[in-house]
Computed example of a mutant assay.
Amino acid sequence: MAGEPQADCLFCKIIAKEIPATVVRETETTLAFRDINPQAPTHVLVIPKVHYADAATLAAADPQITADLLREAGEVAAGDEVDGTGYRIVFNTGSGAGQTVFHAHAHVLGGRGLNWPPG
């Protein structure tokens, strides 16, 4: 069932504290932790505590938690002091776009030049 924890989901296991992560923020609805393969000095994943496969599915099912996720992304950037120099919030949706964990999540990237297009 959508929204329910999935036994085979890496991020659901992190939320349940079954797998360790370097948590930087936690709210009632979200969890933010450092990426284990950072692509920038600040690279934090912000995830909803409910399971939806991707950002579009989350947004359609629960707009309030989607807003919580975006607000927390901004708080992560402020906490890492990249809010003044600029940061990127990235949602990869689908394997063709690089999504490897099918639990909605935002990448917060900052602390280096982030020219577009990424590469």
Results as ranks from 00 to 15, higher is better:
71 R>V: 11
71 R>L: 07
71 R>S: 03
72 E>D: 14
73 A>L: 12
73 A>S: 15
73 A>I: 08
74 G>N: 04
75 E>S: 13
76 V>W: 00
76 V>N: 07
76 V>Y: 04
77 A>I: 12
78 A>N: 04
80 D>R: 10
81 E>I: 02
81 E>T: 07
81 E>A: 09
82 V>Q: 02
82 V>W: 05
83 D>W: 00
84 G>R: 15
84 G>Q: 08
85 T>V: 11
87 Y>N: 05
87 Y>F: 12
88 R>I: 09
89 I>Y: 10
89 I>E: 01
89 I>H: 04
90 V>Y: 05
90 V>W: 00
91 F>A: 07
91 F>N: 06
92 N>L: 01
92 N>I: 03
92 N>D: 12
93 T>E: 03
94 G>V: 00
94 G>C: 12
95 S>D: 11
96 G>I: 06
97 A>M: 09
97 A>S: 15
97 A>R: 11
98 G>E: 13
99 Q>C: 00
100 T>L: 13
100 T>C: 12
100 T>W: 09
101 V>I: 10
101 V>H: 01
102 F>I: 07
103 H>M: 03
104 A>Q: 03
104 A>P: 02
105 H>G: 03
105 H>A: 03
106 A>L: 13
106 A>W: 12
106 A>S: 12
106 A>Y: 03
106 A>R: 10
107 H>C: 01
108 V>T: 12
109 L>S: 05
110 G>I: 07
111 G>N: 02
111 G>D: 08
111 G>W: 11
111 G>L: 06
112 R>D: 11
112 R>V: 14
113 G>V: 13
114 L>C: 08
114 L>K: 10
114 L>I: 13
115 N>Q: 15
115 N>P: 10
116 W>N: 02
116 W>C: 11
